[in-house]
């Protein structure tokens, strides 16, 4: 059967491969090469070695500041989102009336796009701050808190769904056995439920980690980096380097490569974490 199918290579793969080449392979290779070039369009590139990378980390680029801001934001979001989502999941697996309606409501924000969400929250936060005669773009602290609130509001429902699926798979006889042995509900949670949903916890940690780290739309809409680029995350920093002023396209591309390497490292870490879990089971 393999032999007959083999002759159909182009029939089965050509459309996907052609689109994949256009959208990903060629741009990726070209992008890698251009990060070592000075250019304003892809056709006028001159090779400059590691110049762009040195410039990317130079002062005035704010790349390290954005990296620090993004890292702080990511840490806060990973902790808060997972704590809140796990708590809600625990509350929703107690078979209380209305559980399904609550689940529906909590998940809803996840489906709304970042631009629309960003402006919705910008309007709401500004409405609160208006009473104190200020706006979200007047203090980077407001922007940071706003981004964390928005991210929690959007992601908690998503993580909650994964935690609920994990908690529902914990065998009831295990929980019953713990109860008969005299365990309090806190002990049951720590010693039975949490170890049994470790794989869900790993998935949620990495989903929140990579989604927070790569955030762009919400950042662009909520503060657009203001004031003075003090709330500008990595993705927006790269975007601004490309499109705000000409002559820095190479630096933008070098930043993008660094960004890609960090994201790839996070993904590899996730892969090895899930692999080691699989061995244990």
């Amino acid at each position: 059967m393999q032999k007959t199918l083999k002759k159909y290579f182009l029939v089965f793969t050509l459309p996907t491969l052609a689109a994949f080449a256009f959208a990903f392979i060629i741009p990726f290779v070209q992008g890698l090469y251009l990060s070592f070039c000075e250019f304003t369009t892809v056709d006028n590139a001159t090779f400059v070695g590691f110049d762009n990378y040195i410039k990317a980390f130079g002062s005035g680029q704010g790349f390290l500041y954005s990296l620090g801001f993004t890292a702080a934001f990511t840490v806060v979001c990973v902790i808060t989102i997972n704590l809140i989502a796990f708590t809600i999941a625990l509350l929703l697996t107690r078979k209380i009336k209305g559980t399904n309606i609550f689940r529906t409501v909590f998940f809803l924000p996840n489906l709304i796009g970042g631009i629309v969400l960003g402006y919705t929250w910008q309007q709401m936060i500004n409405a609160v701050l208006y009473k104190y005669g200020t706006t979200i773009v007047s203090n980077p602290k407001y922007g940071f808190i706003g981004l964390v609130l928005l991210m929690n509001w959007q992601m908690v429902g998503y993580m909650m769904i994964i935690y609920i699926a994990g908690l529902q798979n914990v065998p009831t006889d295990l929980i019953e056995a713990a109860r008969i042995d005299g365990a309090t509900s806190w002990q049951t949670l720590i010693k039975v439920k949490i170890p049994m949903v470790m794989s869900s916890i790993t998935i949620c940690m990495f989903l929140t980690l990579s989604n927070s780290f790569k955030l762009f739309d919400q950042n662009k809409a909520l503060t657009n980096g203001a004031p003075m680029d003090k709330t500008r995350m990595l993705a927006l920093n790269i975007y601004d380097t490309f499109y705000s002023k000409t002559g820095y396209e190479g630096v933008g591309q070098a930043k993008a490569v660094v960004f890609f390497i960090i994201v790839a490292l996070i993904a590899l870490l996730q892969l090895s974490a899930t692999r080691s879990k699989e061995v244990e089971q």
């Binding site: 990726f28 762009f216 490309f242």
Partner: peptide
């Protein structure tokens, strides 16, 4: 990430 390929 999309930023890697957006310009090219």
């Amino acid at each position: 990430p999309f930023q890697m390929v957006m310009f090219t």
